[in-house]
């Protein structure tokens, strides 16, 4: 287990270096969600927003940030595979989950920074308490990490050519988000709706934040646990069918 942890640590450090190597992409990744948030909610600028309002107004953006960034991380693993990287390095590491866990840690760090900025911007523009929003956003990120990786990991079970990875990621992200919005319109936000928590990452993210505001854990936990276990199982099965070889034989 120690060797596995060291391998995850080394790969996390390497992937962070890769991320910091391209500052313009990093700034775009961090800045774009903040820009969209501002553009869409400018009518609420400098008005006091309650946490219940904040959940409905801002949390769909948070869901998009988490899902989109996780999709990008998964696509980067797929691109590494298409470059022959997984095939070579898989024989070096304890098992290929080292790559995925390392990417998940990098994703947590990156999204954690973005959510920190969102909290700061929210405190400035919507007059919400910075610390009260920040700890809830970070807690939401931790709570939804496993289910959202469960949404994204099936992509690694399919053989995709290098050129098609980005297109597939964009399509899947759009389908997940539009589907989530459709479910959101069809259903009222209720923390007890198990199916909606499983099927919609937007719904799940909003509910996680909501429960951290209202504290109704007893009604929330069954739906959350089903989402966690169900999507965790999807992720595990996807990992079992992980494709290590590039689609175009190198």
């Amino acid at each position: 287990m120690r060797k596995y942890n060291v391998q995850v640590w080394l790969y996390t450090r390497y992937f962070v270096k890769v991320m910091l190597d391209n500052v313009s992409v990093l700034l775009y990744t961090v800045g774009l969600p903040i820009l969209f948030l501002g553009l869409n909610l400018k009518s609420y600028f400098f008005k006091t927003v309650s946490l219940a309002q904040y959940t409905k107004l801002v949390l769909p953006f948070i869901a998009w940030i988490i899902v989109a960034n996780t999709m990008v991380m998964v696509s980067e693993v797929a691109l590494l595979r298409e470059q022959g990287y997984l095939k070579q390095y898989a024989s070096l590491v304890v098992n290929p989950s080292v790559f995925i866990i390392s990417k998940a840690v990098v994703n947590l760090m990156l999204v954690g920074v973005i959510l920190g900025l969102v909290a700061a911007v929210s405190a400035l523009l919507f007059r919400v308490a910075f610390v009260a929003v920040l700890w809830r956003l970070w807690s939401v990120l931790l709570l939804v990490s496993v289910p959202i990786w469960g949404y994204c990991l099936p992509i690694l079970s399919f053989r995709l050519r290098y050129q098609t990875v980005s297109g597939i990621i964009n399509v899947v992200t759009l389908v997940v988000m539009i589907g989530s919005v459709a479910i959101g319109h069809a259903l009222h936000l209720t923390i007890t709706n198990v199916a909606a928590n499983v099927l919609s990452p937007v719904y799940l993210v909003m509910n996680c934040f909501n429960v951290l505001v209202i504290g109704d854990w007893r009604n929330f936990l069954p739906g959350y646990l089903v989402a966690c276990l169900g999507l965790g199982l999807v992720g595990w099965l996807s990992y079992r069918h992980l494709q290590l070889l590039p689609a175009e034989g190198l």
């Binding site: 060291v6 080394l10 270096k17 022959g84 070579q88 190198l250």
Partner: peptide
């Protein structure tokens, strides 16, 4: 060992060594 493997150009040889030998 693959025919060719892209690595980040900004990293140093010692970083590659830490990655491979550290693992």
């Amino acid at each position: 060992l693959n025919q060719q493997l892209p690595m980040l150009t900004s990293i140093r040889v010692c970083d590659v060594a830490v990655l491979v030998l550290g693992i």
